[in-house]
Computed example of a mutant assay.
Amino acid sequence: MQGSGSQTKRSGALLAYKGDRLKPLRAFCQVARLGSVSRAAEALFLSQPAVTLQLQALERDLGVRLLERSGRRLVPTREGEALYELARPLVEQFDGLTTAFRDQLRGMDAGELQIAAGTATILHLLPPIIAAYRMAQPEVRLSLHNVTGESGLDLLRRDAVDLAVGSMLDVPGDLEYAPVYRFDPMLITPHGHPLAQKAELALEDLSPYGLILPPRRLTTYRLVDMVFHQHRVPYTVAMEVGGWEVIKRYVAMGLGISIVTAMCLDGADLAHLTARPLVRWFPRRSYGVVMRKGKQPSPQARAFIELIKPDLFDADGARRGAHSDR
């Protein structure tokens, strides 16, 4: 028991010693920054003798001279420069601890928002929405989970995310889907491709050319397959690859054609691709918010949803009928 008590006393003395070192380090950093004991004393609200005593104690403790006079200024010695580089960030962090702590508490009070979305949605649909949300809710910690299909729905079911943003054909019974945006289906080909030059397109015109599509587990593949089968038109898939950016690149290289939503096409793409609408055969593609049925959204999630679909909640905060957009 006696040994434990002695160890406690030594630990307490060591902590007190380290705590006492902060004041001399703060005084040294101010003198090194301002070049004067008097100016440092004013900045620290101390007397000049108090600052001088702290500097002397620090030099005595470290066994080196830390400051020397150069003209009318005090400047760090070589050892002083080394100490200043080490001590300045520590002193600044300690002095800013209270403000940083309060900011952290405000961030905790503001909460967080977790959103699941696929790459195309994150790249092409969400940027202006996220920018507007950040302006309206700057203290909310926002996380985007780049996942597609069932992976995103699994996160939603496990409450790992607050909501998902994407496109759905079939809505499971435990989820609700509120479509917000609709985009035209587009055929993309390389410039100079026979389909790019054809005056009028028929669905049968696509049959001879291999399609580059996302993996078959995803909505786009299922939609393309459904439309071709409904019209009894044969088709071939030349390649399955994930990501619209990759698909557009491969089409531009002449490796196949594809059917995409207008959402993922911009002016830079049209410098390499020809895009033609296919609304005669393919439905417009909806993108919207997916939520767990019966779960009330957090205030952070509701603020996001109201930003893009303000009519989804009634005056009492209850969700109006979200549905599938088949």
Rank of each mutant, 00 (worst) to 15 (best):
P179V: 14
L126D: 06
S286E: 03
L126N: 08
K23A: 15
T8Q: 13
D109F: 01
G3P: 07
G317A: 00
S38D: 05
D325N: 14
Q114F: 15
P185F: 07
R134G: 14
A315Q: 13
F282W: 00
H323V: 10
A100F: 02
R69D: 01
H323P: 04
A262N: 02
Q114P: 07
A100R: 14
D225N: 03
L74W: 12
G35Q: 05
S11W: 00
L90Y: 01
E59A: 14
R65L: 13
D109W: 01
L74F: 09
L53S: 06
L155S: 04
V251F: 07
V91E: 04
H229I: 00
P185W: 03
S286P: 05
I247W: 02
R292Q: 13
V75F: 01
G267L: 07
A315V: 14
K309R: 08
H323G: 12
S286M: 03
G288Q: 08
K309H: 04
R292N: 12
S151N: 12
E204K: 11
E68D: 10
G210N: 05
P89L: 07
L44Y: 02
T119G: 02
R302Q: 03
K295C: 09
P208T: 11
L175I: 14
L44F: 07
K309M: 05
F183K: 00
P49T: 10
R157W: 06
P128N: 06
G267N: 00
G166D: 08
P172R: 09
S167Q: 00
L123T: 02
P179N: 10
L278T: 05
A252F: 04
F45C: 15
T77W: 02
M226L: 13
T220N: 12
G5A: 15
R141C: 03
H191F: 15
D162C: 10
D61P: 09
G152A: 11
G210P: 09
V180D: 01
Q48A: 08
E204G: 14
V64I: 08
D325F: 15
S286W: 06
G71R: 11
Q48L: 05
V241G: 06
Y17I: 12
R102V: 09
R326V: 06
E81V: 13
R65F: 09
E42V: 15
L187P: 06
G111R: 01
I247H: 06
E176Q: 15
W281H: 13
G5E: 15
T236G: 12
A178T: 02
L223I: 12
V237D: 02
M1D: 07
I122C: 03
V140H: 01
L278Q: 03
G12W: 07
A301S: 11
P277K: 04
Q93P: 03
Y133V: 13
A178W: 03
Q230F: 00
F304Y: 09
Y221K: 07
R302L: 00
G210V: 01
T219K: 03
P208L: 05
W281K: 12
M263H: 02
T98N: 07
P49A: 10
D184Y: 00
L55E: 03
L175E: 08
S207R: 09
S143D: 00
D103A: 15
Q2N: 08
F313S: 11
A27L: 01
F28E: 05
D314N: 15
D314V: 15
M263K: 07
S143K: 02
D266C: 07
R88G: 09
A303E: 07
I188E: 15
R302V: 00
K248M: 06
L90I: 14
Q7C: 13
V171T: 08
L155A: 02
R216L: 15
